[in-house]
Design a protein around this nucleic acid. Structure first.
Lengths: 208, 208
DNA sequence: AATATTTACGAACGGTCGGTCGCTTTGTAG
DNA sequence: CTACAAAGCGACCGACCGTTCGTAAATATT
C-alpha cells in the first residue's frame, strides 16, 4: 500500500491553491477572484491551475467546499465541545464571532460575502450557496431544538434566525464601525435574547 | 428666469442612468457594474457616459448618492409618518422589509450588498460606504432614544443593532429560503424583541 | 450671424480576463 | 529501459474592460 508521489504533490498544491483562493475570494468576491492574481500570489502559472480544475467555475465550487470544511473545523467542531443545550448554542455564536475577530479570512466571512454577491445571479454557484445556507440554518434549528428538549429554553421560536442575524450583521459592520464595539454588541444581544428565553439564565456567562 | 434645455436634458439622462446603474449594481455588484452593459441597457453609447462622470469611480459615488436618496424616499420618509416612539421604530423595520419584498431593486438591498462587497477593499468607495453605515446606525439610535424618552421602551440598549441585524439577514436569506417565510421571521423577531422591552406591548401590532 | 457650451457618438487604445494548446518535467509501473 | 500519466509551464487567443480622442448635433449667449 504505497502512495503515488505525483498525487500527493497534486493534493498538496490543490490545498495551497484553495487556501489562497478562499482568502482572495473574501476580498474580491468569489466571482471577482481572478486566476491571474491567484496564480501570481502562489508563484505558479495560470495554466497550471487548469491541470486541477477544468474551469474557473469548477474552482469556485471547490472553494465553496473548502470554505465549508474550514467553517466546520474552526467554528462548528470547537462549539460542539460545549455541553448540550443553550450553552452549545451560545458557544457556536461566540466561536463564530471569534473566528471573525481573528481575521482568519481577510474579508471576514466567505459565506456571508458570497450570499450577497450571488443573491440575484442565477446559476450553479448560487444554487450551491443556497443549499449551504439551508444546511446551516437547519443546523442552527437542530441546536435550538436540542436546547428546548433539554429544558434550557422555554421556546425556540425565532432563535435560529436571530443567531444568524446577529452574526451576519456583526461581520458586516465590524470593518466600518470598529470590531471591538461591534462584536460586543453582537455578543450582548444574543446573551440577552437567550436569557429572556432561558429557564435558568444563570447557566449563560456574564461578559467581562 | 428661463431654464437651459441642455441642462435639463442632461439631468434627465443622468437620472435615467443612475436608476439603471443602481439596479444593475445590486445584481452584479457596485464594482462588477460594467459601463458597456450599462450603456447597452440604456441604449446610449459607452463614451457618452463620460460626458456626465469623468470616471467609473465618479459614477459609482453618484450611484451611492442615488441609492441613499431612494432609501430616504421609500423607506425613511414613509416610516416617519408613524407616531413618535416605538411604533415609528417598528414602522421603519416594516417599511424596510416591504421595500425588499417589493423587489424595487432586483438584487435586494444596495447598501447591504455594497458593504459586503467592499468591507476588505480600501479606497474612496469603502470609506464612503462606511460613512453611510455610520449615518444609518446613528439614525436608528436616534429613533431608539426617542422611543425610550417617550416612555415606550424600558431600555434601548442593543435595539439599533438588533433592528439592523434582522433587516440585513432577511434580505440575505430571502432568495434562497423563500421570501414569505424569511420576512415573516424578520417581522416576528423584532416584534417579540420590542414587546419584551415595551412598557405597553399592546401598542405594537399583531401579525396576521 | 457668430461663437461657446453641453450632450452624445464611433473608433480606437492598452490591459486584463478566462481558456486552449503543445511542450517539458517528474514520478509510477511493466 | 520503455511506456505511461500526472503536474506544470509559456505562448497565444478572442472577448471584454475602462478610458481617450476627435467630431457632430443641439442649444445657449453675444
Amino acid at each position: 500500500m504505497t502512495v503515488d508521489g505525483r498525487l500527493v504533490r497534486g493534493e498538496r498544491t490543490r490545498t495551497a491553491v484553495l487556501d489562497q483562493a478562499l482568502r482572495l475570494a473574501t476580498v474580491n468576491g468569489l466571482d471577482g477572484l481572478s486566476l491571474s492574481q491567484l496564480a501570481d500570489a502562489l508563484g505558479v502559472s495560470k495554466s497550471g491551475l487548469f491541470a486541477h480544475w477544468r474551469s474557473k467555475e469548477a474552482l469556485q465550487l471547490a472553494v465553496i467546499d473548502h470554505a465549508r470544511a474550514q467553517w466546520t473545523d474552526e467554528v462548528i467542531r470547537p462549539a460542539l465541545a460545549a455541553p448540550h443545550g443553550v450553552r452549545r448554542l451560545w458557544a457556536l455564536h461566540d466561536r463564530r464571532l471569534a473566528f471573525y475577530e481573528a481575521r482568519v479570512l481577510p474579508g471576514g466571512c466567505f459565506f456571508a460575502n458570497a450570499h450577497f454577491e450571488f443573491n440575484a445571479r442565477p446559476g450553479v454557484l448560487r444554487d450551491r450557496l443556497g443549499a449551504e445556507l439551508a444546511d446551516w440554518m437547519a443546523f442552527l434549528t437542530r441546536l435550538t431544538d436540542e436546547a428546548v428538549a433539554a429544558g434550557d429554553l422555554r421556546t425556540g421560536a425565532g432563535v435560529p434566525f436571530v443567531v444568524e442575524s446577529l452574526g451576519v450583521c456583526a461581520v458586516m459592520q465590524a470593518p466600518a464601525l470598529g470590531p471591538d464595539v461591534t462584536f460586543r454588541h453582537a455578543r450582548l444581544a444574543l446573551l440577552s435574547h437567550l436569557r429572556a428565553l432561558a429557564t435558568d439564565p444563570s447557566i449563560l456567562p456574564e461578559l467581562s
